[in-house]
């Protein structure tokens, strides 16, 4: 129970940080910001790594799903950060 409350506290505080950080953003940055935070949501790769690299508890199917999750998350991460970078450099030229 204590652990649950602790993680829940972290969850709520992180939400507030997210709200505060992003409060004022000019419209031109909406799309890059979206794609940037989208790339960050690829953090789920952490879970995927833990799932697919496991020892005795894994089965063929769970490893397959884990690897598929890594592939998807990595597309999200690499694609997301690079595409954001491309967009932002476009803004600079203007």
């Amino acid at each position: 129970m204590e652990m649950l409350m602790l993680t829940f506290t972290i969850f709520v505080l992180a939400i507030f940080v997210g709200v505060e950080v992003i409060n004022k953003v000019p419209p031109t940055l909406h799309t890059p910001l979206m794609s940037g935070t989208n790339a960050i949501s690829g953090i789920v790769v952490v879970g995927a790594i833990i799932s697919s690299g496991g020892g005795e508890q894994t089965s063929g199917l769970s490893t397959f799903l884990g690897v598929l999750a890594i592939v998807l998350a990595c597309i999200n991460i690499f694609g997301g950060f690079m595409v954001t970078d491309r967009m932002l450099h476009m803004f600079k030229k203007k």
């Binding site: 939400i15 940080v17 709200v19 992003i22 409060n23 979206m34 960050i40 953090i43 952490v46």
Partner: peptide, 24 residues
């Protein structure tokens, strides 16, 4: 997923993106 795996790193970052996404 962080709650499933009991992984704080996922919970913090996930809720950060969730909240900033909602505000956006």
């Amino acid at each position: 997923t962080g709650f499933v795996l009991g992984n704080n790193g996922l919970i913090i970052t996930g809720s950060l993106v969730g909240a900033s996404g909602l505000i956006l």
